[in-house]
């Protein structure tokens, strides 16, 4: 029973974060919330008895993907700065 409540709470957090990721104007916040969706999803995988997938999602989905997004975003911003 307690697991069901935890899963519902995690799911609601994920939905709110993905709505922020899609609709928020501030792109930094959007990227961070997309990383947060992955992080919460990894807890959900742990509840679904999949520790391997949870480890992968936490290290790759929410760690490296966010870093690559930020590198590219930083480069685009720098380019914009040089242009102006």
């Amino acid at each position: 029973m307690i697991y069901i409540i935890i899963a519902i709470v995690l799911g609601i957090v994920m939905i709110v974060m993905s709505i922020i990721a899609i609709h928020h104007k501030n792109i930094t916040l959007a990227i961070l919330s997309a990383g947060g969706v992955s992080l919460v999803a990894s807890i959900l995988y742990l509840l679904l008895a999949a520790p391997d997938v949870a480890l992968t999602e936490a290290s790759i989905g929410s760690g490296l993907t966010t870093i690559i997004f930020f590198y590219v975003l930083n480069k685009i911003k720098k380019h914009k700065h040089v242009e102006e």
């Binding site: 520790p51 391997d52 480890l55 290290s59 790759i60 490296l64 870093i67």
Partner: peptide, 17 residues
């Protein structure tokens, strides 16, 4: 244990990050 080549590789990559 849980884990394997992909996860370990990702952890090594984050060390380099």
């Amino acid at each position: 244990t849980p884990g394997g080549g992909f996860q370990g590789g990702a952890i090594i990559a984050s060390a380099f990050v």
